[in-house]
């Protein structure tokens, strides 16, 4: 079963990410990824740029509405995601608690939709 850990950063944590390689904050993240890989649960992950770089697009009555900034105007913003292969939500919560992002911002745990549904979205259905 796959789970997404959606990592929400505070502005302070986004600021920390600008620091250099030897920063302890980055060290904690590196160690966390290493533990995920070595525990054989890692599927994929990526980090996002700060929310100010976001552009939000909507189509209304056939017209493009482009808006500067992120979809939701909240203090904490999506800063990255991790996809994990795990046996249960309990295991997913364990890994979320170990995530360095949990002690500063928040980590939202969401199961990925079952594969059949996902195929519908991605068009693999017809193959």
């Amino acid at each position: 079963m796959q789970f997404a850990l959606l990592i929400y950063h505070s502005p302070e944590e986004f600021a920390m990410r600008k620091n250099e390689y030897n920063d302890p904050h980055l060290g904690a993240w590196r160690a966390y990824y290493k533990a995920l890989v070595e525990a054989n649960v890692y599927v994929g992950a990526d980090a996002l740029e700060v929310a100010e770089t976001a552009t939000t697009v909507r189509l209304r009555e056939g017209k493009r509405r482009v808006q500067d900034g992120p979809y939701a105007d909240t203090k904490e913003q999506l800063g990255g995601f991790i996809i994990l292969e795990l046996p249960s939500i309990d295991a997913a919560l364990e890994w979320a608690a170990r995530c360095p992002g949990a002690s500063l911002g928040a980590v939202e745990v969401r199961p990925l939709a079952p594969e059949a549904k996902r195929r519908g979205f991605t068009g693999e259905w017809n193959q």
Partner: peptide, 20 residues
């Protein structure tokens, strides 16, 4: 081994201690 211990730790202070 420290990396594994840091990655598996939950508490921030413990992570920092091990990183140091």
């Amino acid at each position: 081994a420290y990396d594994r211990a840091i990655g598996l730790a939950e508490d921030r202070a413990v992570k920092e201690f091990l990183l140091q």
